[in-house]
Write a protein that binds this DNA or RNA. Structure first.
Lengths: 348, 348
DNA sequence: CCTCTCTAAGCGAACGTTCGCCTTAAGGAT
DNA sequence: ATCCTTAAGGCGAACGTTCGCTTAGAGAGG
């Protein structure tokens, strides 16, 4: 495609052997200052750029990290993708690494094959995984083959068999509950996910622990589970609002923003005003949360910090052979208070 | 990191020279069926995977495409990122290519340097650009150096100096106008972007042509320009609704969803009901559009088709040296009608 | 029996690096 | 004068491929 400038050409111009040029470029040289200057001049003049394939063939490393993720359904934006990617490749670039992204295959075998191929062809040195759930096959697959990786998320609460960072979802939801209690709520419901979701279960735990900490009883009738969509959120809320007065909730804690959006619609459909009559909270702090009517109180995840840190750790692993401690880390999300809770004006 | 299996090992096992193994693997061999079988057996048994660096060093191509994009601000999700990326790497994978993504540098020189480095080190064979605007420096930079690329978007209306695909924004907005006219609207306003945005200007043209086609006069007082945020959309709409009765619009066409969200809030603030009293349309069909109250009529871009096609063209360029015709292509977006317009019930 | 052709496979070279060891010359110490 | 040390840089090899030319042998044609 283009005429590549090689070490040999630079060497010829500078009047030294090409291996010496290599040494100078990699600053491993015992060379006189004048020679070094001549070499750098030649490099600049010829616009020399070290060839990537040659280098990685010799060094047996690609300085490339692989990443794939499950695509979001059409009606559900991935709220963290852009930020997560950007943070990762900025961190990577600092160390001379790049990110190779590749298709996510739903078929498990095909996905694992892709991991295998990318690693054993030497296209990537390691991987970043994300959005893990119970029984994720990639983790044992990679562990078993000693393929380096780090993860955003974990498989089980107390698993330390591989390096990860994760958001302390329970803590986030507990904060939301605490916030609602402070506003005067005593009957707080939860819109939860199906119990095959580790993230969902973890968040739901925060609901229970938050209530307990506030000295409130938990009531199984106030916990509704379903797919995390607006439709489910809406239906579930309709049901909650039709409960008899003495247990009917005055606030709803939802495990993601989408269900919270549905909840607010249902509140409105019931002739009530979300925010003023019924407090609603979400999780994820999606960009549109602030533009809803009323703006939605939600929980923000420190995505950039996680991406940056994960990448740093992975590269450290690749270059030194071991992770910086701690191997696994939980980070706290932060509650963003908006009108959907702050506007509470009890009717009584 | 791992013990790579090489051609030589396979060859030893199969009892042939390693070059012959190479030929068989690349199906360029004149080899007896039995030998071929022996070789494939050895490949399977040793789990041989051709080394990427070796291959690309020899072939002088990386089978990798570079892509970077401007990160979205925190409060504004990139509505097409996930879909665009996924469509590109599926198309790429089919041809044995992968996507390398790298940090977007706002500082122009640094961005161009990154392009240069990635290409001349041989890390990538070409690029995909996106979201072009007037005066985008990367385009002449790449053209001048003969670096292969394709773009999502264009620089000027009738530029054919480089290969691109773009959405016919004017046509999309014209469709929205036509739709509103059919519903009975006669006074239609536009929320437009600052005039340094090519995309914005293109969409706005559709507003004018739509009106003209419907035999309606255009009124400069009904066009408000500003950054495409919800705040601006809200303010501008407040202003429009305060116009004297005879020119006050009954519908608002907005150049993106975010401004439309703001517009609906302003309509509500004015004591009116968006959808029923004032029609509102957006552009982009962001995932949340359907969850707004009322659900927002918007314009959907065929992102997947574009990503797939762009990738296909770029690879064709890389492998054959020329693009499939047509070099530049416009595709029509589609109007998605929802309550924010369909609910129109004129007061009179 | 000799030459020609064809098939199956071998072989040398090259792609652009980096790595570690070797050589050379100069200078200082003995 | 001899030996040792050190600085400066050369040199061969290897990383894993692919490419194109060569060769051995078999069969065909005269």
């Amino acid at each position: 495609m283009f005429k590549p400038v090689t070490l040999k050409e630079v060497a010829a111009k500078a009047g030294v052997s090409y291996q010496t040029v290599s040494k100078v470029i990699n600053s491993k040289a015992k060379v006189s200052p004048e020679t070094e200057q001549r070499i750098w001049d030649a490099v600049a003049e010829l616009n020399y750029t070290p060839n990537y394939s040659g280098r990685s063939l010799r060094q047996q490393r690609s300085k490339t990290i692989g990443y794939t993720w499950e695509p979001s359904p059409q009606d559900q934006a991935n709220p963290i993708l852009d930020e997560f990617l950007q943070s990762m490749f900025h961190a990577a670039e600092e160390k001379g690494y790049y990110l190779l992204s590749f298709p996510f295959h739903t078929e498990e075998k095909k996905l694992l094959d892709t991991y295998r191929e990318l690693y054993y062809t030497g296209r990537v040195d390691g991987f970043v995984l994300s959005r893990l759930n119970y029984g994720e096959a990639s983790v044992p697959y990679l562990l078993q083959r000693n393929i380096p990786f780090v993860a955003f998320g974990r498989l089980e609460e107390d698993d330390h068999s591989f390096p990860y960072m994760d958001v302390d979802g329970a803590r986030g939801i507990a904060q939301a509950v605490e916030h609602l209690v402070e506003l005067g709520h005593r009957k707080i419901a939860a819109l939860a996910w199906p119990d095959d979701s580790r993230v969902g279960n973890n968040r739901l735990e925060g609901y229970f622990s938050g209530l307990t900490k506030a000295g409130l009883a938990t009531d199984p009738r106030l916990v509704v589970r379903g797919e995390g969509t607006a439709e489910v959120g809406s239906e579930a809320t309709g049901h909650l609002l039709s409960l008899p007065e003495e247990i009917r909730p005055t606030a709803i804690v939802s495990m993601n923003d989408l269900m919270a959006i549905g909840a607010m619609q249902a509140v409105r459909n019931a002739g009530l005003q979300p925010g003023r009559d019924i407090g609603v909270t979400g999780f994820d702090d999606t960009p549109t949360a602030r533009y809803l009517t009323p703006p939605l109180t939600s929980i923000n995840q420190p995505v950039s910090a996680i991406g940056k840190n994960l990448m740093k750790r992975l590269i450290e692993l690749l270059e030194t052979g071991s992770y910086p401690e701690p191997k696994c880390e939980l980070v706290a999300p932060s509650l963003v208070v908006r009108e959907s809770t702050a506007g509470y004006r009890p009717a009584s």
